[in-house]
């Protein structure tokens, strides 16, 4: 599988996302909103727990915002391509279905990850405004932000793309609503976990990384079951 073709598709999708102002604004607005809402929590905890609280915020919100942004961007890249019918022309180019899927996954993952990094930066800045001591991410959280988060964003995009290609329009709409509800509850759950005083360990980060890699391998394997016929016959 040639990487050149994958990057051609990825580059086009990235440019498309970045140039769609409404989408970028929505992604950035969510990053700002959740950072502003979540980060001041560091002033409510005891001095000894501030560092853990700050790292927990980064652990949950950077991951969640990354996945949520991936969900926002995937709709345009996979769902619209199918709804508008351009996918049929793309499938007649020399690219294989897996190359198209991979290119789109890379093309969505990168801008979604940039929003996740923006969230990390905003949480760090705002948390420091409310803290008496200097707050920086722990090494485990740094690894989480630079490896686990992009891996999970890629998993989310891959899975959404797989679903969008595999399912019909009605099923896709149900899928979109379901994912939105799941993310909504996940964000609420994150708040509970943060206030519960958990400490994110190296083991947890390592475990998550392994899970992300396994999920990526599984989704990549699942794309073998995607067929051009399935895609073409589910175009509205």
């Amino acid at each position: 599988m040639s990487m050149d073709e994958i990057f051609i598709v990825a580059r086009k999708e990235m440019k498309g996302i970045v140039k769609t102002k409404s989408q970028m604004l929505m992604g950035i607005s969510f990053a700002v909103w959740f950072s502003v809402m979540a980060a001041p929590v560091v002033k409510t905890v005891e001095e000894s727990a501030v560092f853990d609280q700050f790292n927990n915020l980064l652990f949950y919100f950077v991951l969640m915002l990354g996945i949520f942004t991936a969900y926002l961007f995937s709709g345009k890249v996979f769902f619209n391509e199918k709804r508008e019918g351009n996918i049929e022309t793309l499938l007649c180019t020399p690219l294989s279905l897996r190359q198209i899927w991979s290119g789109k996954v890379v093309g969505v993952t990168i801008p979604a990850y940039l929003i996740a990094l923006l969230t990390a930066a905003l949480i760090t800045i705002i948390a420091n405004l409310f803290s008496t001591s200097m707050l920086l991410p722990s090494p485990a959280i740094t690894l989480h932000i630079f490896l686990v988060v992009p891996a999970f964003i890629a998993v989310a995009v891959g899975l959404l793309g797989f679903g969008h290609f595999l399912l019909g329009m009605r099923e896709n709409q149900i899928l979109n609503i379901s994912i939105f509800i799941v993310i909504f509850f996940a964000l609420s759950f994150a708040k509970n976990v943060i206030s519960g005083g958990y400490v994110v360990s190296w083991v947890a980060i390592g475990g998550l990384l392994i899970v992300a890699v396994l999920l990526l391998a599984l989704i990549s394997y699942l794309t073998r079951y995607l067929s051009k016929e399935r895609i073409v016959t589910t175009i509205p």
């Binding site: 769609t20 351009n86 007649c92």
Partner: peptide, 13 residues
């Protein structure tokens, strides 16, 4: 092979 289907295969953006 070149194709022009009922959908033009063009990106409006």
């Amino acid at each position: 092979v070149g194709i022009l289907l009922e959908n033009d295969g063009l990106y409006e953006g």
